[in-house]
Amino acid sequence: MIMKGYIGDKEATMGTLDSEGWMRTGDLCYIDEEGYLFIVDRLKELIKYNGYQVPPVELEKLLISHPDIIDAAVIPYPDEEAGQVPMAFVVRCDQSNLNKAQVMDYVARQVAPYKKIRRVSFVASIPKNPAGKILRRELVKLALSHSPSKL
């Protein structure tokens, strides 16, 4: 049971409910082959690159599909020209010699140009809360606390 809309605000109603009455919650999720629903991110965490919106979770799924990547997180990194650029924090497999250029190329071959990873930092682990949600704010603080030459 959900609302029918906002009283006297047709535009807000159209932005919240789709044409079939489904409510847009802002959650990004997927349903696995067994029918379980997994909420993995929020739309409002989008990266805004030159007017395009880039969902971090899409890039994270792609990164994790690489055989040398155990875990990954993508954050918005400030950029004077583009506004924000996608930056990846990557946990490599033991003994992997995967480098930043290889990570960026792997993603670039599979996404639209505006979704490409522009920065990469290798880390030992991705900070997550007890429910397993990525703590992006911690990663943003980490990224901004280091000079560009260290990342």
Rank of each mutant, 00 (worst) to 15 (best):
K4F: 15
K150F: 00
E45Y: 09
R136A: 02
D105K: 15
F89Q: 05
G35K: 10
A101L: 02
K44P: 04
P113R: 15
V111G: 03
D9E: 12
L62P: 03
K61L: 15
L17D: 02
I2L: 13
K44V: 14
I117M: 00
S149T: 06
L46E: 05
P127H: 02
A143N: 02
R92V: 05
D79T: 00
S147W: 08
G51D: 07
M104D: 01
L28R: 11
L135V: 03
A143R: 04
L98W: 01
S125M: 10
S121Y: 07
V140A: 11
M14Y: 12
K116L: 00
E80N: 07
Y77R: 02
M23K: 11
V54A: 12
P67I: 06
K100C: 01
K115P: 01
G8I: 07
L37H: 10
K4Y: 14
W22I: 09
E11H: 07
K4E: 15
Y52I: 00
A124S: 15
S147P: 08
E11A: 14
Y114D: 00
Q95W: 06
E80T: 00
K4R: 13
Y6I: 10
D18A: 05
A108C: 08
V90G: 03
P127T: 02
Y36R: 09
I75Y: 05
A108H: 11
N99P: 01
